[in-house]
Design a binder for these strands. Structure first.
Length: 843
DNA sequence: ATCGATAAGATCGAC
DNA sequence: TCTTATCGAT
């Protein structure tokens, strides 16, 4: 077939294909054009791995494996050559006759399966693919998490494993409830085997594809034997409820594939190309899933960074990435080491830290970005001092034209956000906490969702127990136990017993209440078929009496009702989005698989706070990492295990590499942990960073020469509010203050975490003491100068540490304090608390 | 059945 | 310090 034009045509074709990927560096291109066979991409932080994934998928869909190959469907003619040359030169589309020569076995979008760590990452991938390939082609690529991919597979074929099509997905809360029942049943003492630990162990077993029978067969010791028994009982319980926990989703999919050849083959044929992101955080079960799926084509591409493996404690095995070449013989390895995100100072600091780890594949990131400023280290006196310093820095950036949303505050534990939150809330700095409690974890939401899941899966006794007497229906604990027992005897579910309650004399007077509950269930079923999804949910809240119950319960009920309102609107959003595909099961699935991180929206202009774990995969111009102290980060518990310590170090590496422009590390000499003030040494991670990369700053509140601060002399520190103030906060949460108009930008939406709104003390407020020296004084100085009241009046000109200069618009006294609404020169209108905000009167 | 008091425990946390 | 769970009392 070869003729005189062939060689030139092939060269030209490669060049033509490459044109579409012109922005990539040579190594990235290599990854994009390596489409066949196993491929491991070791992608350092900020090395453009998502870009590579997106471009690689685009290449597979557009050109298949044409690039670099000598494949041709027919002989090349001189005319072909001319046309290709012209198209390239003039940038015109290819003539139809040529198009078939450009693409060798291109995949259709649905032949590609891309697995990401979070839903958010999957969405980002889809969006970028849609931008590159157009909405139809891009939208048809399967991009999802392991769990949602598995749910889809199990919904289709899970019946072969004995699960109903509309199985319920149990979250950690459901798991614990189920486990409690197992403990009761087997009379296990949770002091001997804590429930959480047990759930964790069982999770690890599932991660390793060990079924209950396997665990029962070969217990290593008596404790393992007990766990095996609990595991077995737990699994039976879930099975009869028609429910799976998160680990089951993976485990059962692997089981399904191993048992049912044809199911596996179906997916092997469907997914010709498989891509897995964050491979360093996959489990053994997930590895097997990938191996099975890739078994057909062998076209599996995994992307990961062994230095960013931070979920070992949860069953992720770093060995997956270390052994990839062994698992998939003939694998090609590509390293992306050029970083496009951070300055070289930040990168060097990250390298300094991570090189102290032993077990790594080893790589050194480099960048062509400039040196940037040095990494800042601030040594604070207390966590409040730490918070105040951050506010000051953010203030400086804001005045220089920076945006709030370019700032991220990262910490080791969720609890560490508290002092910063308190400070920011009082100072009126808008922020948002990502992570922590999910919206869907709230009791009222979980209750209504339980009602919904009973409609979808009446077999689910666990969720039924949750709501059978909520609101109170005179069905007490004893009755519930009797019903459960009867269900067991009759080999049916509890709801069925409710329906036939009259037949069982042992239920006595309770039969009426149970029958009535079954009537409610029937009504709900009717509503589910008759009404659109969102109206169904509203109806459900009404006929179950849940709404009435909340309405009758005062203050807290009102805010819960508001949350339920939000639930209804998210159901509506879901229904609108999915159109005809919308279903109750589909919504429940989304609820079960969504995380708080997924709702993080980079467009709202607020400072974000999250743990370093949550920050994985994100980037920010300015990153603050708090609490770099021994015992905090690295955490106390990691101190005695080298492996745990290395994981902490990787976490530190992840944290550092989130920063694009500037990195602010801080440590505090004293910190309150679990109610006790502790003094910690600065973190070893700080000392690991070469001193010439660091710029040290000490809090002015720390006296030189190790002298004790004046507050140590027995007096109460000005920050020591005691517990009362915190307890009093609640009153505020329902006050007007939180409902600051969304447009004003004050107070970030807290993404339904229920935090984020300032915890503002409303009683016994010490009045403000005006400060004389800006730096030496703590910003939110609630000095105890009884009697003196803050005097801000509309028209006053004030200076705010963060927002700069502004004019007071409105002053509203509230219990013990005053809300001051200020029109700032640079950042618009904000509301702050007079007693705590870092403001001073200028005129 | 529901409220209030007291005791225990508290990481990191995707899906 | 703060939350959540469980127990005991009405």
């Amino acid at each position: 077939m070869a003729n005189e034009f062939t060689a030139e045509f092939l060269t030209l074709r490669d060049r033509y294909i490459e044109k579409g990927f012109g922005r990539l560096n040579p190594v990235q291109k290599e990854a994009v054009f390596c489409t066949e066979g196993p491929l491991l991409i070791l992608a350092g932080a900020g090395s453009g791995k998502t870009t590579v994934l997106v471009n690689r998928i685009a290449n597979i869909i557009r050109y298949g494996s044409a690039h670099g190959s000598s494949w041709l469907p027919r002989a090349v003619t001189e005319e072909d050559l001319m046309e290709l040359r012209t198209a390239m030169m003039m940038n015109t589309p290819l003539p139809a006759g040529l198009r078939s020569m450009m693409a060798k076995d291109p995949a259709r979008p649905w032949n590609v399966l891309a697995i990401t760590f979070t839903n958010k990452a999957a969405d980002e991938l889809k969006n970028r693919l849609a931008a590159m390939l157009g909405p139809t082609e891009g939208g048809d690529v399967n991009a999802s998490t392991f769990h949602s991919a598995c749910v889809r597979i199990l919904r289709r074929d899970g019946e072969r494993l004995g699960y109903p099509k509309s199985f319920t997905i149990y979250d950690t809360d459901d798991q614990q409830r189920a486990m409690k029942e197992v403990y009761k049943q087997l009379m296990v003492d949770d002091k001997f085997l804590p429930i959480k630990a047990c759930i964790g162990q069982i999770g690890r077993l599932k991660d390793q594809l060990i079924a209950p029978e396997d665990a029962l067969a070969a217990p290593i010791d008596s404790k393992a034997g007990l766990i095996a028994k609990v595991y077995d009982a737990y699994q039976k319980r879930l099975r009869s409820a028609g429910a799976m926990d998160f680990d089951d989703l993976i485990f059962n999919t692997v089981q399904l594939f191993m048992k049912e050849r044809e199911v596996l083959e179906h997916y092997q044929n469907k997914f010709r190309y498989i891509l897995v992101d964050e491979y360093q955080d996959t489990s053994v079960a997930q590895f097997h899933l990938v191996r099975l799926l890739a078994g057909g084509s062998g076209n599996v591409c995994v992307v990961g960074d062994d230095d960013q493996s931070i979920y070992r404690f949860r069953g992720a095995t770093i060995e997956n990435i270390l052994n990839f070449e062994h698992h998939f013989p003939g694998a090609k390895v590509i390293r992306l080491e050029q970083n496009y995100r951070s300055t070289s100072n930040i990168l060097d600091a990250a390298n300094c830290v991570i090189q102290n780890n032993q077990g790594r594949k080893g790589k050194t990131l480099w960048t062509e970005n400039g040196e940037g400023t040095k990494v800042h280290h601030y040594e604070a006196e207390s966590e409040q001092d730490e918070a105040s310093h951050i506010a000051t820095v953010i203030g400086q950036h804001l005045r220089a034209g920076g945006k709030l949303r370019d700032h991220a505050i990262l910490y080791r534990m969720n609890a560490q956000s508290n002092p910063v939150e308190t400070y920011f809330a009082r100072a009126g700095i808008p922020y948002k906490i990502v992570g922590g409690q999910r919206f869907y974890d709230r009791k009222e939401i979980k209750d209504i969702v339980s009602y919904m899941s009973i409609v979808a899966n009446p077999r689910d006794d666990l969720r039924l127990r949750r709501i059978i007497n909520e609101p109170a229906r005179k069905i007490g604990a004893t009755t519930i136990e009797k019903v459960a027992q009867l269900a067991q005897q009759e080999g049916t579910c509890m709801l069925d017993i409710c329906a036939r309650a009259g037949q069982f004399s042992e239920l006595g007077r309770a039969a009426g209440a149970l029958n009535k509950f079954y009537g409610l269930y029937q009504q709900m079923q009717e509503a589910a078929t008759a009404l659109p999804l969102d109206q169904f949910v509203s109806k459900l809240m009404e006929i179950s009496g849940y709404e009435a119950m909340l309405r009758a319960s005062g203050d807290e009920g009102v805010s819960r009702l508001e949350n339920l309102g939000q639930l209804v609107s998210s159901v509506k959003t879901y229904a609108d989005q999915k159109g005809l595909d919308a279903s109750l099961e589909g919504f429940l699935e989304e609820v079960a698989l969504i995380s708080d991180l997924d709702s993080y929206d980079q467009d709202t202009d607020v400072v974000v706070m999250m743990t370093m774990h949550s920050a994985k995969g994100l980037e920010f111009d300015y990153v603050f990492i708090l609490g770099l102290e021994e015992g905090v980060f690295p955490s106390e518990l990691s101190r005695y295990s080298d492996e745990d310590l290395e994981e902490e170090r990787r976490l530190c590496y992840v944290g550092i590499t989130r920063a694009k422009k500037e990195l602010y590390l801080s440590s505090s000499q004293s910190r309150m942990i679990f109610g006790q003030t502790r003094r910690n040494r600065p973190s070893r991670f700080l000392t690991e960073i070469s001193p010439d990369l660091l710029e040290e700053e000490r809090s002015p509140r720390l006296n030189r020469g190790g002298e004790r601060s004046p507050y140590d002399r027995g007096g109460r520190s000005p920050y020591d509010f005691g517990g009362r103030a915190a307890a009093a906060n609640r009153g505020y949460l329902n006050g007007d203050y939180n409902r600051s108009p969304a447009g004003s930008g004050s107070y970030g939406q807290s993404g339904g975490t229920g935090r984020g709104y300032g915890r503002v003390s409303s009683t016994e407020q010490p009045t403000q003491r005006r400060w004389t020296s800006t730096t030496a004084q703590p910003a939110a100085q609630p000095a105890k100068a009884a009697g003196e009241k803050p005097k801000f009046r509309p028209g006053d000109i004030v200076d705010h540490k963060v927002f700069g200069r502004g004019q007071v618009l409105k002053v509203t006294p509230v219990a013990g304090d005053t809300i001051v609404e200020i029109q700032f020169e640079r950042v618009g209108i904000k509301k702050t608390m007079a007693n705590y905000a870092p403001i001073k009167l200028v005129k």
